[in-house]
Amino acid sequence: MRRIGGFWRRFAISPAAAAGLVIFAALLAATVLAGLISPAPPGAIDLDAALERPSLSHPFGTDPFGRDVLSRIVHGARISLGVGFLARTISLLIGLFLGSLAGYFGGRLDSVLMRLADITFAYPTLLLLIAIIAVVSPGMISLFVTLGVVGWASVARLVRAEVLSVKEREFVQAARASGANHAVILLRHILPQCLASVLVVYTLGLGMTIMAEASLSFLGLGVQPPAPSWGGMISGGIAFMRTAPWLTFFPGLFLTLTVCSLNLIGDGLRDALNPRLASALAKPPGVSGGRPGAAIEGSR
């Protein structure tokens, strides 16, 4: 209990992390209460009110179909955050499973899995995503499955390193000596020790995953219209940059705020849980320095 209290104090002391948490909580609340906040249903077309400037009835203006931009942003948040959480959870499960197997059993399994991770890292992330989605045809399901699968490697590497550092400690040897089987040792004794760093890599990767989703939707490979997505809204606004800049401005602002708050939370978690972690999270061996999102590289 004292440990948790100490953690919370260290996290709350950092004003940046607290600010991130407040911003993200506000965004989450807006997502949950989307129906209450938005002035109109996100798909409601009103051609008489097309391309209106921001006003009291439409705080962020309207698009060429007269749809309310604020409503589409709030409903788009559901998709962005939903895809982000789902994809990141898939990465987490795959990474936890393969990473702990590699770290615990070592040997040939370990080297095969780590070479696979090297291959995943050999691609700039966005390009690998593009190459896969171009083949499997775009859509919501292929989007979060692809994002999830591609993100496994950073989680697996981290979990493997953590398992390696824990597995020879006394309490693990004690469990082994008392006759516990591999599954019990891994699940009950080793993995709980890795949770802190997994939480950090999950949060930092979440921002980058949301960014990758927006980039793909911007390119037309992600969420398909008419479903509202931030990336899609920005690309739809390009043609109206001269006359209706609010179409591109507001969705991008929300995207930036979301990613920014997640980076702040992730940095805060990392510093509060374990300052030593900072170097363990950086991608290539030997590189250190507080770099948000370094674990899921290059998706901007």
Partner: peptide, 8 residues
């Protein structure tokens, strides 16, 4: 800067 989408 690190949180801003490059296309935006």
């Amino acid at each position: 800067g690190v949180s801003m989408p490059v296309f935006w």
